[in-house]
Each structure stands twice: as structure tokens, then as C-alpha cells.
Simulated scan of single mutants.
Amino acid sequence: MMRWSHVGLNCADQAATEAFYTRWFGFRRARVVRAGDEEVIFLKSGPVYLELFASATPPAFPAEKDGPTHRGSVRHLAYQVDSVDDFLAAARGELTVTLGPLSFDEFIPGWRTVWVSDPDGVVVEVSQGYTDQAPEELAAA
């Protein structure tokens, strides 16, 4: 079953972008993921998520594989599925995979992702297993 997940945004200033969407659009932190020096912030409002990337930091993945990295741009669109492997099997090689599938078990057990390209080159992330962070963990983030 395919479900809308989020839009990844590249930010010149993550804190300013988070404050903007929190103040004006009712978003709240749902998860913070740290990988080396990179921090990715997930914001949530109802069922809608934004994934905030700091565009000043080098991307954790090869350039453009998970979407463009220049600030002020949409990095990728994202969907959740029950199984990335089932999604890829159903595609029968008809999709252009730009990255993955990759496992993010170090952050969330069972979190797996693949990135594909649409006909216009827009990167679409397809993931399984994402969950929000517990409130007490967010307080410490």
C-alpha cells in the first residue's frame, strides 16, 4: 500500500526554516537523525512531514542521488510502503533507481529506502519502517 510521506527541503539555515514552519504552519519536530556531522530534521503537522537538510553540509550520499542539494530547492518527494522489496519487484525493472535500497537500522530498526527518478528527473524516495522519535528523545535532541 502506497502512502504519502514527505517533501525533503534543502535549507540555508535549518533552524530558521524549522522556526518558520513551526510558527506559521503548525509543524513540530518528529525526529532528528544525526549521521556524522550531518543532521536531518523531520517536522510533522497532522499526517504531513517535511524533511529538512542543511544545504551547507556535504551530502551523505553521492551528489544528486537522493535529489538536488542546492539550498531553497525541493530535494525529493517521498512515499511509504510496507515493503521496499515488494515495491521494486512489482516495478519489474521499469524504474530508474538512483540510490539504494539502503538500510537505516542504526536509526530505526527496519527502516529501508530506495530512491528512483521520475520521467522528468525528479527524485522520489520510497521507504518502509519510518517512525517518529519518542518525545523524551526529542527533548534531548
Rank of each mutant, 00 (worst) to 15 (best):
L102I: 14
G46W: 10
A56C: 07
T96C: 07
E125S: 07
P47L: 13
F42C: 05
P47G: 14
M2Q: 15
D13W: 05
D66T: 15
W4I: 13
E106S: 01
S83L: 15
F61V: 07
R29H: 09
P62S: 10
V123Y: 02
G46D: 09
E38F: 01
L9N: 09
P68D: 07
M1V: 15
K65Q: 14
F104S: 01
A60L: 13
F107R: 03
K44N: 02
G8K: 13
W24K: 10
L95W: 04
S5R: 15
Y79H: 11
E137C: 01
V114A: 03
L77P: 09
M1T: 15
V124G: 01
L99I: 01
D105K: 03
T131L: 14
V48E: 11
W24M: 14
A78L: 05
D132H: 02
S127F: 09
R23I: 02
V116A: 00
S45H: 14
D118T: 04
D82E: 15
R28S: 13
V7I: 15
R71F: 03
L138P: 01
Q80L: 12
D118Q: 06
L138N: 02
V116N: 05
Q128S: 11
Y49E: 03
S73I: 00
A12F: 14
H6I: 04
V124L: 09
R75T: 02
A134E: 09
P119C: 04
A89M: 03
L88I: 07
T98V: 07
Y21E: 05
D105S: 03
V97T: 09
H70W: 07
G129H: 10
P59N: 08
G121M: 00
V114F: 02
K44C: 11
E39N: 14
G26R: 12
A56L: 09
S83K: 13
L77Y: 10
R3Y: 10
D66P: 05
E18I: 05
P68H: 11
A35N: 07
G8I: 05
R28P: 00
A30W: 06
R23M: 07
P109T: 10
Y21D: 06
P59S: 09
A15M: 10
A89E: 12
R92A: 14
P101D: 03
A134L: 15
F104G: 00
T131I: 12
S127W: 00
